[in-house]
Structures are given as C-alpha cells and as structure tokens.
C-alpha cells in the first residue's frame, strides 16, 4: 500500500516580493524560496505517521516545478519519504492549479498510489484547488480539509475528521482517494542533519514536462492553463498608525470613540 504526497516549493514568507515586468506574477529573481510549504510539511508528517502506525509501505513525494523545486523534495526525503519525482518545468512556464493537477495526474498513473495526500493549499497562491482537481482527473474521490485520519487498511476504509465552519465532521470513506490535509496530528518533524545527508542518496527521478504532454493533452483542458492571470498586485502599503494623546483614561476613550465614529466611520 503506497502513499503519494504532492508538495510545492513556495517563496519564503519573509522574502520581499516584487511584481514581475509582465505584471501577471511575482518576479522570482532574487526571491528566497523556502524548502517547503508549511501545509505540505504537515502532510508529509501525517503520511509518515500512516507508514509508521498503519503499515503503509512506500511514501513517495512529487512536485511540479522548475529545477529548484528539487530542494522541496529533498527536504521531504530528509523528513523520511522514500522516493521523489520532480516534474521539471522550464523556469517561467505559465501554470495554474488545474494544469498542475493534470501533470500530477499524468505522472501518477505510473506511480503506485493507494492514498494521495496534498496540503490544503500552498502558502503562496492559496488556491487550494490541486487536491480536488487531481481527484477529478484520476477518477478518485477527494476529501478536503482533513484534520484527523485513521485508516482501516484491511477494509480499505479511512476514518476522517474534517473541519467544517464552527465544528468538525467525522466520516468514513473508501480509499484509494485524494485527501487535502488541513493539519496533521503532530508538528512536522525537522529533518536532522544525518537524515539530510541520507536524503541525498535516496532516489529522485526527474521527468521533463514534455514527456507528459501527450498524456496531459488527453485530459479535459489539455496542456494550456485553464485560467489566465490578468494582473498581479501587491497589498497596498499599510497606512501609518494614528496616536491619540490623552491625560486620563476617560479622555482616551472619548477621543478614540470620536475617531472611530467620525474619521474611521466604523461605528
């Protein structure tokens, strides 16, 4: 019984982004990329738990991205994944979540998978669409926002908890399936130095996107992104804070009330 986890390399949250000359994405020049998306780290951790506690055999990780995305895969290998696959794209290839899902689906047909797990969303575009699209393309059921996962491998059943507004839902479903993980039951482990060194020796297969084009062309939507980004803008700079001067607490409250009513007009 094999698990396939999809990961994405994202810009470091501390890095400063600039809009690219095209105005449709961010400029990746000079951007520091973190090794992994935090939701993906939680997902890899949960997948490792499936292996350690429920007897799943192999854990493979897969990513669609340029050569540097290998770093994200190595980091997952250092956490404990067994093998990795990089679907290598040219550096600035236009991708949208659905096209990414098509490439993943095309590659996944050759990779054993009883369970496919993805992070609920990537920290950068926060689309959260790849998991359900992947299920669709592979003809598998998909379940989103899973917060707890207990497989019953003998019956090919999953008992899951998922987040619903204001509460939780507990349900069961058969697998193979695609799950998007909201959070794992444990904090993701930090790869140790010896495991980082060992990860270098684990198999990492690179598949150029071209090699998958024929398969992707046969999926609904084909080899072009389904959606097109028209414009990409950064959040407006935050306006400066306004300090309220006061002598007594009563005066502070009065002045604050006045500002909220008359200037901010929120009351």
């Amino acid at each position: 019984m094999d698990i396939l986890v999809c990961v994405k390399q994202v810009p470091d949250p501390e890095t400063k982004l600039r809009v690219s000359p095209s105005g449709k994405t961010f400029d990746s020049d000079g951007v520091k990329f973190t090794i992994n998306n935090t939701y993906d780290e939680a997902t890899v951790e949960e997948a490792l738990r499936m292996k350690e506690e429920f007897g799943f055999s192999a854990l493979r990780v897969i990513s669609v991205g340029p050569a540097r995305a290998e770093e994200a895969l190595r980091s997952a290998l250092a956490m404990g994944a067994d093998e990795a696959v990089l679907i290598e794209t040219p550096r600035d290839m236009p991708l949208d979540p659905l096209l990414v899902a098509r490439y993943l689906a095309a590659a996944a047909t050759d990779i054993p998978h009883d369970l496919i797990m993805v992070g609920r969303q990537a920290q950068d575009d926060e689309a959260g669409a790849v998991g359900s699209a992947l299920g669709e393309y592979l003809g598998l059921p998909s379940y989103s926002f899973v917060t707890e996962l207990t497989p019953v491998p003998a019956n090919h059943l999953l008992k899951m908890k998922r987040y619903v507004e204001g509460g939780e839902e507990v349900f069961s479903a058969p697998f193979p399936a695609v799950l998007s993980i909201l959070k794992g039951s444990k904090d993701p482990r930090t790869p140790t130095l010896p495991n980082i060194l060992k990860a270098r020796k684990k198999p990492l297969k690179k598949i150029p996107v071209m090699d998958l084009e024929a398969k992707v062309a046969n999926l609904p939507g084909g080899t072009r992104p389904t959606s097109e980004t028209l414009a990409f803008t950064l959040p407006p700079p935050r306006a400066g804070a306004k300090m309220i001067e006061f002598q007594t607490p009563e005066e502070a409250a009065d002045r604050l009330l006045k500002v909220l009513k008359e200037e901010a007009k929120v009351l």
């Binding site: 770093e71 190595r74 140790t192 130095l193 980082i196 270098r200």
Partner: peptide, 15 residues
C-alpha cells in the same frame, strides 16, 4: 551545493 544549503537552512532554522 544543494546539500550545503540544506545544512545551512537547518542550522538557520534552529538558530
């Protein structure tokens, strides 16, 4: 090397 960057990142995060 990619491996050296990973070691550096591990140390940086721990730090």
């Amino acid at each position: 090397s990619a491996e050296q960057k990973e070691l550096q990142e591990l140390a940086r995060r721990f730090a």
